[in-house]
Write a protein that binds this DNA or RNA. Structure first.
Length: 434
DNA sequence: TCTGGGGTCCTAGGACCC
DNA sequence: TCTGGGGTCCTAGGACCC
């Protein structure tokens, strides 16, 4: 049994994403990079996370460790940059701003892509509208984007991919409007290229005879629910044209907040781990307060380097706070206590992280106090302190931090090739030579 | 020397309650 | 003699996404 695709129902989804976003941002601000092969590295200059079209043409692969490909890449004339998240985040903000001219409902999905709802628009002009979006972003931001349009988020995603695959013919905009177009595209799409189907699922699906997106789309959702799981059932429905995500689902507040990072070099000393924890509690706390939430649970994890032939250790813990809090220092106290519980001397640690869980909205008037814990009585004062230090940190390069963050620095990030923060720092502005 | 840092959702299984 | 079962909450871990 298969549902009949009837084109658009009440929802029309467009997915707009920027082509090789990070390298494009670099190229926009540095004319010397225009038309060159460019690679942007992950934190710590670890892996290649973004690769310009020219670099792709030279065989550089996404995810490749930089230390393994560096020699070859340099020889081929590849330009390299460390991640410059301040710049990318600001460009991302402008990207969303531009999209908001085209629809009141824009839901950012990741740093370089967003769903734009086109519900209620005339079906005749959608492709044309997509081209206007593409041209506007190109003109105002200098970024190339691709647009996929369909009846559901999953179909819009597939359209977006088609815009990539058939770039020449489609000029960056692909709409799945008719039943014929839907079947044509799904038949040519591998199951693994569907949004939500990863390597594991794809292998299992192939074993049971489903290799193309069309074969999956023709399954009965109820059977898929019973034999596989709800996620797959939803994907089948979405491929059939029935949207399973509610408007606003994508844009909600974070449900957990994580700060973690690999160390530049292996760390064994407890004190240095504590310094890293202080850093992560500070960052996580900032993110938490920015979205107006408080956390009820603090978790932390600690791990050794799995690529090294050394004793391995991998541990995580979590603890409930006496009362939900926004306070970096409460998180830090809890995290340090937990660290003492799981720390094992003699291991060389590669990564540590803090996760804030059980998030809820801050209710300013009614803070739930714990009568057995005097420290919670100070929660009101603490909130004021946090608000003030966030303001200071937003204004000044070296604002306010827990002292232990400053005390140790040798685990900090490697960023050997970072470009200027062109759009957000006065002292790093682009200079025009006359 | 050097192998990312975020997130989401789902499921299974145990504890606990009535 | 007969030794429950359903619901809920929590946690850990897997799979996936960018």
């Amino acid at each position: 049994m298969s549902a009949v695709f009837t084109g658009y129902r009440d929802q029309i989804w467009a997915l707009v994403d920027a082509k090789s976003f990070y390298t494009s941002c670099e190229q926009v601000f540095d004319p010397a990079l225009a038309g060159k092969p460019v690679v942007v590295l992950s934190n710590n200059d670890g892996c290649c996370v973004a690769i310009s079209e020219q670099a792709k043409g030279l065989g550089i692969q996404r995810g490749a460790p930089w230390f393994k490909v560096e020699r070859e890449a340099r020889k081929l004339g590849v330009q390299v940059r460390s991640s410059n998240y301040v710049l990318y985040a600001d460009m991302s903000r402008r990207f969303i701003e531009e999209l908001s001219r085209f629809s009141p409902q824009v839901e950012q999905y990741s740093i370089d892509e967003a769903f734009v709802r086109l519900d209620g628009m005339s079906h005749e002009n959608l492709t044309e509208y997509g081209k206007q979006i593409r041209d506007t972003i190109d003109r105002h931001l200098g970024l190339a984007v691709r647009v996929g349009i369909g009846a559901t988020p999953t179909l819009a995603k597939l359209g977006n991919q088609a815009a990539k695959t058939y770039e020449q013919r489609l000029e960056g905009v692909a709409e799945i409007r008719t039943e014929h177009q839907r079947r044509w595209l799904l038949q040519r799409t591998d199951v693994q290229d569907i949004w939500g189907i990863g390597a594991k699922m794809a292998t299992r699906l192939r074993t049971s005879g489903i290799t193309t997106a069309l074969q999956l789309a023709d399954q009965n959702p109820a059977d898929m629910r019973r034999l596989w799981n709800v996620g797959l059932a939803r994907t089948v429905l979405e491929l059939q044209g029935v949207a399973c995500m509610a408007p606003g689902d994508i844009d909600e507040k974070r449900k957990q907040i994580l700060s973690s990072r690999s160390f530049g070099v292996g760390i064994s000393q407890l004190d240095e781990l504590k310094a890293a924890l202080a850093f992560h509690c500070q960052r996580a706390g900032e993110k938490l307060r920015q979205q107006g939430s408080q956390a009820g649970v603090v978790s932390l994890f600690l791990r050794t380097n799995r690529y090294k032939d050394l004793p391995q250790y991998n541990k995580s813990t979590a603890r409930v706070l006496a009362c939900p809090s926004q306070d970096t220092y409460q998180f830090l106290n809890s995290a340090i206590e937990q660290l003492h519980g799981i720390y094992r001397p003699g291991c060389e640690y590669q990564k540590i992280g803090v996760i804030l869980n059980d998030l809820s909205d801050v209710q300013h008037q009614s803070i739930q106090l714990d009568m057995f814990d005097a420290s919670t009585l100070n929660e009101v004062k603490r909130r004021k302190l946090m608000a003030i230090s966030d303001q200071l940190n937003a204004r000044y390069k070296n604002g306010v931090k827990p002292a232990s963050v400053i005390s140790s620095t040798n685990w900090h990030m490697r960023q050997a090739f970072r470009s200027n923060r062109w759009t957000t720092r006065l002292d790093e502005l682009q200079v025009a030579k006359c």
